[in-house]
Deep mutational scan, measured.
Amino acid sequence: MAAAAAAGAGPEMVRGQVFDVGPRYTNLSYIGEGAYGMVCSAYDNVNKVRVAIKKISPFEHQTYCQRTLREIKILLRFRHENIIGINDIIRAPTIEQMKDVYIVQDLMETDLYKLLKTQHLSNDHICYFLYQILRGLKYIHSANVLHRDLKPSNLLLNTTCDLKICDFGLARVADPDHDHTGFLTEYVATRWYRAPEIMLNSKGYTKSIDIWSVGCILAEMLSNRPIFPGKHYLDQLNHILGILGSPSQEDLNCIINLKARNYLLSLPHKNKVPWNRLFPNADSKALDLLDKMLTFNPHKRIEVEQALAHPYLEQYYDPSDEPIAEAPFKFDMELDDLPKEKLKELIFEETARFQPGYRS
């Protein structure tokens, strides 16, 4: 834990890192770190609560700039109880001085990944967590956004079992017609939660990839272990087919990539493993919904509104309290091709509203 900075004593240090967030945020305490930044909790002297502050230093890398800009653009436009918001952003007053960006968010005690390492969940908890994931996802999908990296560590939890989806750095506007060349190379989302079509096709992607990830998360809540822990690309596919069985001819016809289709045709026939054999203690309604989410063919996979209306979630289902976005989200430009200098300018502009004396 960093010592509390005395008023006016300059930035606090946390594990050798400068955290320049005073005077409003003090009493910093280390939480963890990701690929390009550290997260601390801090005391907000204005709202009198502890908050989470993520320090991001992305400006050396085009990919990190892209992810940072995506996350900020999306989260500043989203407003939903099951999606983490941005409360404040701290950065230098000029673009030349801006080396880091500090993002202030609600402090959540833990995440689903940490929880599943230590606790076996009751059916009631599984049901409530799944409902909140789908409630947040309904809003995301209504904005025409794909999260693309749903996994237990991106689901934040607090002691009252509130759940918030975080990390929109890989999110995209849904565009089933656009052929994202190089899709697989830039697709760094965790393999275990990846839909089979991501490994088999490169053309376009749809909201059904997020539903697949939610199915993987439900299976993990039922058993405290990942359902498809593939060691590499082909191993991942083999794990999936080992449980779902061989795809039907109709399902194979959806695979545009001939090499991928021929690979699947070359494999020995596998039978589907019954879900109640894998999860003998699970609620039968939970397994019915799991089956509809972990469907090989993305066109037959359940959609988020149908999933919310499934009998497993009937005690929570309330369409009048499951809000959607006001308007579909649009990125003005494809960020993939922009140089990091341009992305830095866009991050600077996007964060201006939090600067003292800002006038829109």
Rank of each mutant, 00 (worst) to 15 (best):
L287I: 08
R91K: 01
T26G: 10
F183K: 10
A309W: 02
L107N: 08
L241Q: 00
K207Q: 13
P268F: 01
G16E: 12
A286G: 01
F168Q: 07
D210G: 02
F331N: 06
M38H: 12
E81G: 12
V214H: 12
E350M: 04
I103E: 06
Y30P: 02
L258D: 07
I302H: 10
T351M: 01
D175Y: 15
K207P: 13
E345T: 01
P11S: 13
A325R: 07
F331S: 08
D210P: 02
L130T: 08
T206L: 13
E326F: 02
Q315V: 00
G169F: 03
H232S: 00
I211L: 13
P152Q: 09
P268Q: 03
F59R: 09
E197G: 09
Q62V: 10
S284F: 08
L134D: 09
L170G: 08
E186F: 03
C216H: 08
I209G: 09
P298R: 09
L290D: 11
A260M: 02
N224M: 09
R70E: 11
K342G: 08
L244G: 07
L115D: 03
W192V: 10
H299C: 11
P23L: 07
L156E: 11
S360A: 14
N281E: 10
I126D: 08
L234P: 10
H120F: 05
I72P: 00
V188L: 12
T351G: 07
V188W: 09
E341M: 03
P274S: 12
R277S: 15
A7Y: 06
L107M: 13
P323Q: 03
Q17R: 03
R194F: 10
D288W: 04
Y187S: 11
D251S: 02
P23M: 03
N224T: 13
P196M: 13
K330D: 00
E33K: 14
T185I: 09
M38G: 09
K340Q: 09
L134R: 04
N45G: 09
Y131F: 14
L150V: 03
Q119T: 02
D235C: 04
A260D: 12
T160P: 11
L28E: 04
S41G: 04
S320I: 07
N82L: 13
S153G: 02
P339Y: 10
E12R: 11
L244H: 03
Q97V: 06
R172F: 02
A174T: 14
I53C: 01
Q17F: 07
V188S: 07
V304H: 06
H125Y: 12
P298E: 05
I74K: 06
T351C: 04
Q249L: 14
S29L: 13
G204H: 12
H120N: 13
G136C: 04
N262A: 08
L146Y: 06
L134G: 11
T68G: 03
H299P: 07
W275G: 06
D288L: 11
M293R: 06
P274W: 06
H61I: 01
Y36H: 06
L107I: 09
I217P: 09
F59E: 06
